[in-house]
Write a protein that binds this DNA or RNA. Structure first.
Lengths: 341, 341
DNA sequence: TCATTTTATGGGAACGTTCCCACTTTAGGC
DNA sequence: GCCTAAAGTGGGAACGTTCCCATAAAATGA
């Protein structure tokens, strides 16, 4: 029976029970266990177990300044991409002995700064941020305060932090190359509002610049997906019904767009393959819809792990910081029927 | 310029800057702001802003015993159902001034108890748990220690805590009723190993008991989905190829099963509708696959919110606890082509 | 007018740790 | 065999709060 149904056992009670000093108990649970004699170790171990002792992490971080907490801001937790990255982040944190305090901002700058504030009050030792668009002074303030910070996927103006994400130009190039190779000639690039995220801008800009190089023509369509699943059918229908025999294809800037566009195409009765469809972000269901939807998969877990690695590295080289690093991962092409004419 | 590029500002520095006592500053940031004169409030506010002060939550919880933290254990963070519930939980926490420390156990009991341990060390004031199967003594220990605890979806033997989840019998009844009404006669119920979760047991048991009442025959198939996407095609093929003209249908116990089964059916070239397919858990893509997959949607956000509500209630009525409550939500039927012959 | 309450403020002791130092004992070097 | 070093242990002061108390001033009541 592990005793005491009420309240928490303290280090002092363990010390008394083990006939040792609190210092020794502290050493036992800290990283100086080796300094204790075998015998004392034994006494403390059994006393602690008997009493059901758990060091109070709050007290620990107060004294030592180590909260052992990493904070994460996720723009949209219902986006499978975000969750996959978060999974990687959490694993890496745990491997380094940290816990993850993850907050969902629902793409709302107000929630973002509120959460940032909370995370600061818990004295997180590092921050992984999938920020909303607004070039946030609060972020730079965090860095100035000395908290290591990594930006995920999206860079933020005038915030000099490490950035981890997809190699966006390469992703677009791969998409264009694939679509060109499969014989599509006229493209429509569909994206959420680019102002909100640098990665969206990068992708869109690259799309425009490289079309010529692949002998393609194309244009971009910006869809605000706020709220419902609604998406304007007419803009897409107009593109598809445009006269001319050149094979047409749609390129979706991310998973959310791919979902919305697939819905629209079904509503319009479009046959996939004949009309090309391709998306960035791999999702569970992409292989299930009709002939399968071709995607560019992001190495989400790796991105998450890399983010934490950056954090840990900065933590170790705290004094006189190096310039921000940018780490870009290669996407993986998963060809399916939706780009097979 | 919010001053001090290094380290954190303390309450004492603010007090000095505002020509006030630390007690007054503490009052200002606590819930006794009203007791201070307008003038003093002003001085403190501006001093705090000038210095960029954020109360240290670690110190706060150490002294006051309020960590303002709720812990959550999620069995599988890559399951959209879990994420949706988590979203509800987080919203509700924030509304009550709590932050959420969410941990993913990847269905691994070892990680579960490790995380439980960590959460305890942060002195979380409540715990929302989507537990793995093992009837965990650790859980009861948490309760005994006085931490309110809510079980999500799955009950755990010999742990007397509140349980929030789906009305499983009703869900099965609705499914059977719908399938019978649509003319299917022979059913195959497909589930993950029921030992791991009470909800799985409930659903399966109900399925077996109520078949007769709807004039149906049927049997159950248990699939271990660990690891890859692999799923034994042959068991399902055997069911489908069984002689007899009675229309057949498959009922999937959760979203993960629905995904795996849909993959299998595509591989087998089965036409949905002709062969019925229905699943518990609504997913993004269910309306996209072929004629659309009929589902029973769980009110995930509501479940999440209810869990936190239970926690808050227990927190307020700490002394002399009431018996565990069980809250069960009704599913919503979303009929689609996969159950239309 | 003076005792009494109320209002506004501040000092100091905790909360449960860690960590610096100091002390004792044992081992090592010559 | 004595001096020094190392190993093993413990006491006490922080860490940044909150909260109990005490105080001073202002308001109230007769």
């Amino acid at each position: 029976m592990p005793a005491r149904s009420t309240r928490h056992v303290t280090i002092l009670e363990v010390a008394r029970e083990a006939r040792a000093s609190k210092t020794s108990v502290s050493r036992y649970f800290g990283d100086e266990r080796e300094r204790l004699s075998r015998e004392l170790q034994g006494r403390i171990a059994s006393a602690a177990k008997r009493l059901g002792y758990r060091p109070n992490q709050m007290a620990r971080s107060l004294k030592g300044g180590h909260s052992r907490l990493i904070g994460m801001l996720v723009a949209d937790i219902r986006n499978p991409f975000s969750v996959a990255v978060m999974h990687g982040v959490e694993q890496a944190c745990r491997a380094s002995g940290y816990s993850l305090l993850a907050c969902n901002t629902d793409n709302d700058p107000a929630q973002e700064s509120a959460h940032l504030s909370v995370l600061a009050s818990y004295r997180v030792e590092g921050l992984v941020i999938n920020a909303t668009g607004s070039p946030h002074g609060a972020l730079q303030a965090v860095i100035d305060r000395g908290t290591p910070l990594v930006l995920l996927d999206r860079e933020v103006d005038r915030v000099d932090a490490d950035v981890v994400g997809l190699d966006n130009p390469r992703a677009i190039d791969m998409a264009l190359e694939h679509l060109a190779e499969r014989g599509y000639r006229e493209l429509l690039y569909i994206t959420e509002p680019p102002e909100e995220a640098s990665s969206r801008q990068r992708r869109m800009a690259r799309f425009q610049t490289r079309l010529d190089d692949f002998g393609l023509t194309g244009e971009s369509l910006c869809l605000p997906l706020t709220g419902g699943t609604g998406i304007p059918h007419d803009a897409i229908a107009a593109f598809l019904n445009r006269p001319g025999a050149a094979p047409k294809a749609l390129l979706c800037a991310n998973g959310k767009i791919t979902l919305a566009v697939t819905r629209t195409l079904q509503a319009l009765g479009v046959r996939l393959g004949e009309t090309g469809l391709m998306g960035i972000d791999e999702l569970d269901w992409c292989e299930l819809v009709a002939p399968g939807i071709t995607t560019l998969a992001q190495p989400t877990e790796a991105i998450g792990r890399a983010a934490v690695e950056c954090l840990m590295q900065r933590r170790e080289t705290q004094r006189h910081p190096s310039p921000p690093r940018h780490i870009h991962y290669q996407p993986v092409l998963i060809p399916r029927g939706s780009t097979q004419r």
